[in-house]
Design a protein around this nucleic acid. Structure first.
Lengths: 336, 336
DNA sequence: TTGAAAGCGCTAACAC
DNA sequence: GTGTTAGCGCTTTCAA
């Protein structure tokens, strides 16, 4: 049986209140008893029971993180950033992959509240905003990352998707591309919509019209990007450039292009979004729009902790600005 | 204030015991009261407090997972596999990246025991086996994955590293390579040692001697692999093939080779280890030794849960067998 | 500087 | 079928 605070108190010849105080460094305890209690704890291999203390303190010192898929490098990096920043504040993190499945989302969110996490960070594209609204009514500290819910007053840390799309679009247009395709995971979330809108607007600013028939919904994975890109490449008049709304799709696009024998970037320019480590691994290295992953994780945790500690009442939306990272997958159009 | 079981009991006009029974589906409750209690819970938006129940039930239904770095795709995939299997049993998982830092390892392990996780899965290369021994004495269910501790009776799920190295070595030797280099993260862990030993033995079996000067410790990242590979390539007599003890290093090696203008696989064959998704992204696609990641996560959780439920006393070491996955980064030696 | 005692929200005998 | 009650291991007034 694990030692409890009673065992320590008894062995040390003091009360449990005293032991509690030395553990938590609260109240005033003489150096002598403190040291003695420490020794006894050591001897008994005593490990404070945080579930008991959580029950009284009403704080578990754990954060919940929901995201679509932990195996996706982008989210894995986000998770790591959250973990690191959480650790600095003494919080650990419970991770939940939802696969963007509404059922899982609801289940996990409910689980997290039952486990009484002190706050939740969600990168999941929550389908059920009704449910989310309910969560917020429970007043559980909550911050959304990577995406926004325009209709909800919820703390958010995100990147400016419109600007990201705009940067991608201008880059391509400046390189002389006119026939630009867009690969998107799905159209159900604002981020993707904004990225497309940004790209379209950048093109329009240079009088290049986006052919809406070249905007393809591909699903979520390298494979999906690849097969969708193949469709695109079998078109009579194939695009000379493609903006993929995330790196995974961009990679699929590159693979598809190579499989049909195209040279990159001369035959096809590809721009991604996220700037995950994958972007440097693919050949040619991917020109992409960077999200400041570390910073997103960091700021999200900061906001959450402030809310948990009630140091803040003002909800806010932090919009970080993306960057165009030039690599080798894009180049001036090759007019034959 | 969140509703408690008392609020529900009162509002439903029953005792808390009854409410508890309907929540946990224990004891016998009439359909009528059950339904009524459910309605009240609904109305009050009651969420059972799992920290309270954990205190009495002595089970938190959460698992701890420690690994070197969640941002590393290999471990991210492991984490996802563990999460999924855990979920099937109703467990969530607390993730801890140790960066192979002995201090963090000790801190996290201690944190996990304080949070009273029901069990721990560790992929971390725990430096401090003394500490680990202490953990095991506490009888906390524990399973090691991805690596072994030969001197400790601890449940383990791993891949046969020796065989993996052997497969890599034979493959290269069969392709006619004689000057084979090995890139390894570090020599502090049995896995790496075994992989090298396997490779060496496969070579020896074909009367090819491993030049120990070609075994380089590179550190842990694509960048490290790259710079170490550059050293290797600046040798007077450069190797014609390299076995990298993990995919990250293999990717670094490929990048280095390309940067100095080599053609792969004609000028250099590269074999990796792990078969992460990265292997399919790099160009040329990486020939590598596959670890059955899903299966490792799955089996680890199964073992752990059995131990938690005390359905098992026998400790065991599950050794999964690796596979050679042929892709495009290796080919017969090119004799000029 | 220390201790007694009342909770925290729940489960599990056990009694009715 | 349902209720009473004694914990689970800890924190936190409040007294001493």
């Amino acid at each position: 049986m694990k030692a409890t605070i009673y065992d320590v108190a008894q062995a040390a010849g003091v009360s449990i209140a005293t032991v509690s105080k030395v553990i938590n460094q609260t109240g005033r305890i003489s150096d002598k008893t403190r040291k003695h209690v420490y020794e006894v704890m050591e001897k008994l291999k005593y490990e404070p029971n945080m579930v008991a203390s959580a029950l009284t303190k009403k704080s578990t010192y754990t954060l919940g993180l929901t995201l679509p898929d932990l195996a996706n490098p982008f989210f894995a990096e986000i998770a790591r950033a959250v973990e690191d920043r959480g650790r600095e504040y003494g919080f650990s993190v419970l991770i939940c992959s939802t696969d963007n499945d509404p059922d899982k989302e609801v289940q996990y969110l409910s689980l997290l509240t039952q486990k009484r996490v002190d706050g939740i960070i969600s990168a999941a594209r929550i389908q059920n905003d009704h449910f989310l609204k309910k969560m917020l009514q429970h007043h559980i500290p909550f911050v959304l990352i990577t995406r926004e819910m325009p209709t909800l007053a919820v703390d958010t840390v995100m990147v400016d998707d419109f600007l990201g799309g705009y940067l991608a679009g201008s880059h391509l247009v400046e390189l002389g591309h006119k026939r630009i395709a867009i690969l998107v995971e799905d159209m159900d979330n604002t981020s993707n919509l904004e990225r497309i809108r940004g790209c379209r607007q950048a093109m329009a600013a240079s009088n290049v019209m986006l052919d809406e028939g070249l905007v393809l919904i591909s699903g979520y994975s390298v494979e999906c990007g690849k097969s969708t890109m193949k469709e695109l490449l079998s078109l009579d008049e194939r695009p000379s450039a493609v903006f993929a709304c995330n790196d995974l799709l961009a990679i699929g696009a590159i693979q598809a292009a190579r499989e049909v024998g195209l040279q990159l970037p001369s035959d096809l320019s590809v721009v991604g979004f996220d700037n995950t480590t994958l972007a440097t691994i693919i050949d040619p290295p991917l020109t992409t729009i960077s999200q400041p992953i570390q910073e997103i994780g960091r700021r999200a945790v900061d906001l959450l902790i402030q809310e948990i500690k009630q140091e803040k009442v003002l909800k806010q939306r932090v919009v970080l600005l993306p960057d165009l990272v030039l690599r080798k997958s894009s180049s001036a159009i090759n007019e034959r």
